[in-house]
């Protein structure tokens, strides 16, 4: 049986806008994935804990507040602490190009900025899953 891809869509930090995250959630759902949406204002601890309990293949985070350089790497750190190495982590939101190399260095597999076609995100996920499908 084909494995269903499970994705946690999360909004870390304090910004209160999840329109983009919801668009992504629906696009992933329509691509046949199971999307666990955790809502606004999540701490990295909450995100990692939910990712573990839900046994997701992917964590997709969206930030518009500018706190990405702190929050994204913190999520990676916590995942590592818990020994979770088989989860693909991607980010999106309002993120300056200059910050992207640093985030990738911290382990964020890809960063999708405003205007990214949802098809690209879906394809990226399908191609880069860390667990065999």
């Amino acid at each position: 049986m084909e494995r269903t891809i499970r994705v946690l869509v999360a909004k870390p930090g304090l910004d209160g806008h999840d329109r983009g995250a919801k668009v992504i959630a629906r696009a992933l759902r329509d691509a046949g994935m199971e999307v666990i949406y955790t809502g606004l204002r999540q701490t990295p601890e909450q995100i990692v804990s939910a990712a573990v309990q839900e046994d997701v293949d992917v964590v997709a985070m969206s930030i518009l507040s500018g706190a990405h350089n702190h929050l994204f790497p913190r999520v990676m750190e916590l995942l590592k602490e818990k020994g979770v190495e088989d989860v693909l982590v991607i980010g999106g939101g309002v993120i300056p190009d200059d910050d992207i190399p640093g985030l990738k260095g911290a382990g964020i597999a890809a960063v999708f900025t405003p205007g990214s076609p949802t098809g690209d995100i879906i394809e990226f996920i399908k191609k880069n899953l860390k667990r065999k499908a």
Binding site: A25, L28, R29, D30, E34, V35, I36, Y37, Q53, E54
Partner: peptide, 30 residues
Amino acid sequence: SPFTGGAILGDRIRMQRHATDDGVYIRSLA
């Protein structure tokens, strides 16, 4: 979804305050 097999599992949104409590385990199923 009966068409794509996809799902939005949104029940967890209301329960996330328990996410970091070791005495609670929450799992969403489609």
